[in-house]
Amino acid sequence: MSPFMTKSLKLLGGLAVAATLGLGMPALAAGGHAKKLQEAEFSFEGPFGTFDQAELQRGYKVYREVCASCHAMNLMSFRNLGQKGGPFYDERYSNPNDNPVVKQIASEFEVAEIDPESGDEVMRKATTSDRFPSPFRNDEAAKASNGGALPPDLSVMAKARHDGANYIYSLLQGYDPEPHGLTVAPGQHYNVYFPGDLTSAWTGDHDKVPAGGVLAMAAPLSDGRVTFDDGTPSTLKNQSRAVAAFIAWTSEPHAIERKQTGVAVLLYLLIFFGITYLAYRQVWRGKH
C-alpha cells in the first residue's frame, strides 16, 4: 500500500467518523408529542431527597377520597402506611401493626371473607394486614362502570410512566379546554399531558395538531375537592402534588432506604479504592 493510499484511507476514516457523529447528534434531540411535563420539584428528588411525611398524609387522603373510588392499589396493605418512611410511621411503633392510626384506618374498611361455618361470603372489618380493598369486584365490573375503560391499578404507577411523579402531577392539572377543531368522542377527555396522536381527530391546520391526547378519565381533582386536615390550601396544584408524592412512595416504599444505603456503599468503596490504589502503586513500583 503506497503512503498516498494510506493517507487517503486515514482521511476517509476520519471523515466517516466526523460524518457519523454529525449525523447522530441532531437525532438525539428528537422529541415527543405530549406537552413537556411540569416540574413539581418534589422533596424526594435527588440522591439525598426524602419524602415529606405531611405531604404523604395529604396524598393518602386525596387517594382515598377521590382516586380510590375507581383505582385499585392491590399491592398496598394498611400496615404499609405505618412502616418506616410511610405516611403514618411513628417511631414509637416499630411494628406498624401496632400503630393506632393504621389500625384506625384499617377498621374503617370492610373486606370479604369466607365464613368457615357456612362457606358463605361475609363482610368483616379490615385489619392492618389486609390489602387496600378494590373498588370493583373484578375488572369487568370496573370496565362496566367506566365506559368500557379499565382504571389501572395505581400501586406502581410512578414507575410505570416516564418521570412518573411529575407525570401524575402534570396529568391531573392538564385538563385544558378542548381546542376548537378537535373532535373529542363522548366519554373521552382532552388532556395536554396524555401521550397520544390527535392528528385524526384534528380538523385544523396540519402543522398545528394540539399536544396531548384523550383519555377516559374526567378531571378528578379541582380546587376545594379534598379538605386537608393540616390547613394546607386545597388547591388543584396542592392536591395533585400530594397524591403524586403518595403514589411515588407506594411505587417504591424503600426508595429512601435505597439512596441512603447507596451513600454508605459509595463511601465504603471510595475508601476501599484509596487503599487498594496505594497498594497497587507500592507493588508496581519500578516495574513499569
Partner: peptide, 9 residues
C-alpha cells in the same frame, strides 16, 4: 462504584 451508582440512584 459505577454499578452502585445505578443500583442505588
Amino acid at each position: 462504584m459505577l454499578f452502585a451508582v445505578f443500583v442505588f440512584f
